[in-house]
Design a protein around this nucleic acid. Structure first.
Lengths: 340, 340
DNA sequence: CTGTTAGCGCGTTCAC
DNA sequence: GTGAACGCGCTAACAG
């Protein structure tokens, strides 16, 4: 890389001191108009840009927010990133994005590296494997170092920090209720393994809605998908049971369910209803398009940064972790009939 | 944030000098075993982590790569990010992700901020608006500052730097040829405005394939989508013309085409063929699923970082811009019949 | 008005 | 074997 121009070179070139240059560039009133003009002209000419590293070191802040996501191919996480980025830029921050790829080891490593001072704070959604291990030491360490941390979507109570989540129980309830309103009684649930708490919460909502209708939960109708195996093959068997609807906790599962239903000759939504979660492009372009619970990823992302930045900038105050709950909405499409 | 422990505090605490500590932590042979042990033990105990900012300032390198994308909701860009991140991590780098949101002004701004020394190099896919303006000064400035830059996918010749692209002409040809092999003769092209060069290149491939079959290009069959307007409404009219197939330059356009075709009562793929571009989830889950040209976003991302890092680390060598062309593959699905 | 000094945290000479 | 001094680029406090 070409030698960058610094305050020092300007100072030497113009025969003044570095601090004069520094002040002149900030239009300080301490400096005479003519020297200011001279210095500013020179700086412009040679396209001087202050070295942000030096500033960061000096100010002890980077204006960078670290973001660690499990993966990005879920449309949901893409929208969250957009939200985070937008909120960050608005407040003069930038984001550094990393992926844990659902791996515990990589999460630990990434957390360690980013907390070396390269970021002012972190926004994280916890990796599956970590959730499974229940080992949160890397997070609690962070908290005790008092590095601002916001957890979103996949959060756990063991970590004392700010959180942004959707009302998963309520959302699961809403989804199931909608199917019940469609006249469905035998509703399968396609969800994640138990250690992924969002799945568990949505399941609670599902059960709650059933109970209200005096329907007993049938565990055979609940499929916990292992993402390491073929998703479709795991869903298929439930279609051999007597079911008339499916609630899937994400859009991939929902899309698979629709495919299978159609192959089995079931007419959606006339004979069979499907509802998904996360309002992504798959739901929109599947046919029939899929009714879903919209998770508002963009909003979650934006709220997360705003919370984080507030924490970063007002570190003086007493720390009492906040939890923001984002409400979810039913996005009605073709895979279910409107509630009667 | 809690006061971080530094080399200095360790030195003071243990009654040695900072340089002794520095050397001890690097296991230098200049230091006696016992002082090393003492210092290392202390450092571990208090969880000492070298301040990366200070290191960056000292080494004049950040080990961070800036990435600027037009947007992320396209599955293609998500996969590119994954590829970039994986390649970066492997080489000990991190990525800083920003979005231009297709806006010229934001691209300029972001480029300026990131080139302040916060990154060692940049990977960019140019914003639509910039492509339209044809104003690349912010990029050429970067080049003349000798900041390593890799452009991918949406690139222009005016900028002298490394590039990674797919063989768009070849891909357009391949796609069109496949439809012709399906027995289609009246193929509509749904593409981007002319200023988006990838669209133009794919169009060239389309025309080339037609010419080979002695079919004259009919401009009425070529739709240039303005993304600011409703996509579907712009596609619909072409279905009133006499067509038997569609080549769409991305999967959203393809999914829309399929929907419209089905609504018009056309049977896909029996009566009508559709081929898309970018192998994303929509193509996979649409019904019928969509045959596409797979763009290999992950590979593009990974090759881009690798190229960039090579450039960053061997800056001594003479600079002769490289251009890597990634070949694309036909991904056969239900929306077309196998080539006969 | 302008310059000197010191320090952010670290590593690297070069003395001792 | 250990430490003092310097520099990375910048700014704030203090002198002049």
């Amino acid at each position: 890389m070409k030698q960058k121009i610094t305050i020092k070179t300007i100072a030497k070139e113009l025969g003044v001191s570095t601090s004069t240059v520094s002040k002149a560039l900030k239009d300080s009133h301490e400096i005479s108009k003519e020297t200011k003009d001279k210095i500013q002209a020179y700086a412009n000419l040679y396209n001087y840009k202050p070295n942000s590293l030096a500033l960061q070191l000096r100010n002890q802040k980077t204006k960078v927010i670290g973001v660690i996501l499990p993966k990005i191919v879920h449309h949901f996480f893409s929208t969250v990133i957009m939200g985070i980025e937008e909120g960050a830029i608005e407040k003069g921050y930038h984001i550094m994005v990393c992926f844990s790829n659902e791996s515990y080891a990589k999460e630990v490593e990434t957390l360690k590296v980013l907390s070396n001072g390269s970021v002012d704070g972190l926004i994280v959604s916890i990796a599956n494997e970590t959730l499974k291990n229940k080992d949160y030491k890397h997070f609690t360490d962070l908290v005790s170092e008092e590095i601002p941390l916001v957890l979103f979507d996949r959060v756990v109570d063991d970590i004392l920090c700010d959180k942004v989540v959707v009302d998963d129980v309520g959302a699961g309830y809403k989804a199931t209720k909608h199917l019940l309103d469609n006249g469905r009684k035998k509703i399968a649930l396609i969800t994640t393994p138990k250690h992924v708490n969002v799945g568990t919460l949505r399941r609670q909502g599902y059960e709650k809605a059933l109970i209200e209708e005096y329907i007993k939960t049938n565990n055979n109708l609940i499929i916990e998908i292992d993402e390491n195996l073929d998703v479709r093959k795991q869903i298929e068997p439930v279609f051999n049971l007597d079911i008339d609807g499916v609630f899937a906790v994400n859009e991939i599962y929902a899309a698979n369910a629709i495919r299978i239903a159609k192959e089995k000759g079931l007419k959606v939504p006339e004979d069979f209803s499907v509802i998904g979660f996360t309002d992504g492009l798959i739901s929109e372009y599947s046919s029939p398009s899929i009714t879903t619970i919209a998770q508002h990823g963009f909003t979650m992302g934006k709220q997360s940064v705003e919370l984080l930045i507030e924490r970063i900038e007002k570190e003086s105050e007493v720390y009492s972790p906040k939890k923001i709950v984002i409400s979810s909405d039913l996005k009605l499409r073709e895979s279910t009939k409107p509630s009667s």
